[in-house]
Nucleic acid binder design. Sequence first.
DNA 1: CAATGCACCTGCTCGC
DNA 2: TGCGAGCAGGTGCATT
Length: 279
Amino acid sequence: MPELPEVETVRGGLNQLTLSQEVTGGDVLLQRTIAYPFSVDEFIDKVKGNTIATWHRRGKYLLAELSSSSPSYLGVHLRMTGQLLWLTQDQPLHKHTRVRLFFGEKQELRFVDQRTFGQMWYVPSHVAVESIITGLAKLAVDPFSPEFTVAYFADKLKKSRRPIKTGLLDQSMVAGLGNIYADEALFKSGILPTTLCTELQLPQIELLRTAIIQVLSASIAVGGTTFSNFLSVKGVNGNYGGEAWVYNRTGEPCKICGNVIGRIKLGGRSSHFCSQCQS
DNA sequence: CAATGCACCTGCTCGC
DNA sequence: TGCGAGCAGGTGCATT
């Protein structure tokens, strides 16, 4: 479900709904969802009594800053199938409910995750967030950051001899792209996914950088639902727009030239492309 | 060191 | 209808 646009949409919803209300308790239904601390009782104990000042996003990670002069953090990664839902506590439990955090008397932030890859962390005050949520340490710049310049991108690419599709999925190259938006950005910039990073010329790198930003912002603009079968925090949506140019369109005609969309595996992931429009 | 393959899970779809 | 194979939006670790 969630790549950068979906995570950003969730962040927006959480900032509207969850701030300034005390966490009054919680329930962990699947232990291994809690990556830190080791004890789930300690996790609930530490989160309890806090209020959330604001939700941040770094790549596909969500970080709740807990109100304090020296803040602690609640980290969440949705991985493949995680959802955060804002509900009343009396709502029937979904089969895949993994963690419940109670807010005030009636409200609840519920973590539902079919495939159980999703994780949550509690990061104490005065501790570097990257030392607990280790995935953050290797995270590259955000595609919307002013640091994501052509020069930055070109420098990363010239050091990497592997297919560009694989490179785009590497969160230490750019943070936030996943399989869908990587394929879409490559189509938009006319680059075959198999092209080696080192083979890309400056004009192509400029095109690709622009395509990444465009594809992601277009999706954020419609609430991350462009091609995601995705639920917002309020539980609305879940529409599959089918607006992708290439993703999941194997065997169908290219929307630009009519050529059949192909699929190959790169780095273990399906890559969709038009061999006519991309070279 | 960089690149690759696979494990981690549950559930759905497809072909036989 | 049943069954196995293959697939799914991500990441981390072992192996080359």
